[in-house]
């Protein structure tokens, strides 16, 4: 049975010019211990569907789904208290801008200890010890010192490690990572992806990785969902997707990668669509 199962999810936003459909009838499911990549360009609704699961969308959003279950439990009908027990403990999330995700006015140690005390009910002393363990687990150098550091005193990669430490504090069964390496340099990106994959194996947690980067997909995913303009275009295991993409949009995206350029010109998505239409 799937850990998270969403069928026919639609998210609409009320805007000044009427209703805008950001996600249009998308199915997503992820199994225990599986790495699912949701890939798409800006405006594809790849983040919005996961924010809907986390209950992080503003009031202007209308969420409808035929089914939205986590571990057999219905998420959409949960009371706020029930949802709070689930979100932030069993399902956690990290975001694109690690430096902006942390509060600049408090030390990183204070912020992670707060998570531990509120979510796990640890005492101050226990929280401090566990925070130190977590900082070691995510590979932060000089962890004792870094617990006393403010976010601006750390690099982007280190801040993302702090975010990951917070996200795995409660040993979640599902971690959602929304573009976790987009703001980072390529060598740091590799370290963070390696860390996420290592923790995923160790904790046996499911990982949903939201990304626009086909390279990141190739290096991490078991299964891939390709989204475009709020709709699911294709779903496949990672090897089939790269070996034999089925949907024209996926084929277009892959051929637009500069490393796949065969001639002098890069094929573009619109080239591909006009070609397909001409057939």
């Amino acid at each position: 049975m799937a850990l998270l199962n969403i069928r026919n999810l639609t998210v609409r936003f009320a805007t000044a010019t009427g209703s805008f459909t950001a996600v249009d009838g998308v199915d997503v499911s992820v199994d225990r211990g599986e790495v699912l990549a949701i890939v798409g360009e800006s405006g594809s609704g790849k983040s919005v569907s996961m924010l809907a699961v986390m209950g992080l969308l503003p009031d202007t959003a209308t969420i409808t789904a035929d089914e939205m279950t986590y571990d057999g439990r219905d998420i959409s009908n949960m009371t706020r208290a029930e949802r709070r027990r689930l979100i932030g403990r069993e399902i956690t999330m990290i975001f694109q801008e690690p430096v902006a995700s942390l509060n600049p006015s408090f030390t990183t140690g204070f912020q992670i200890e707060e998570v531990l005390r509120v979510n796990l009910g640890l005492s101050k002393r226990e929280a401090r010890a566990r925070a130190l363990d977590l900082f070691r687990a995510v590979g932060i150098p000089e962890p004792e010192e870094k617990l006393r550091a403010y976010p601006h005193q750390m690099s982007g990669g280190q801040c993302q490690r702090v975010m990951i430490a917070m996200a795995i504090a409660s040993k979640p069964r599902l971690l959602i990572a929304d573009e976790p390496t987009t703001a980072l340099d390529v060598t740091i990106q590799k370290q963070i992806l390696d860390l996420l994959m290592k923790l995923q194996e160790e904790y046996g947690m499911a990982l949903i990785l939201i990304t626009h980067d086909m390279g990141v997909v190739a290096e991490t995913a078991d299964r891939v969902v390709v989204q475009y303009k709020g709709r699911k275009m294709e779903e496949a295991d990672v090897l089939s997707l790269f070996e034999a993409p089925q949907h024209p949009y996926t084929r277009a995206l892959l051929s637009a990668l500069p490393e796949n350029a065969t001639g002098d010109r890069l094929p573009t998505v619109s080239d591909y669509y006009s070609q397909e239409a001409g057939r």
Binding site: V186, G215, D222, L239, F242, L254
Partner: peptide
Amino acid sequence: RQLFAATPVTDVEAIRARVARRKAA
């Protein structure tokens, strides 16, 4: 070399190798 090693590759053979490693693990 470090930069090249860190750059993700979308090569099918590399993906095949990674999937096999993961299965074995």
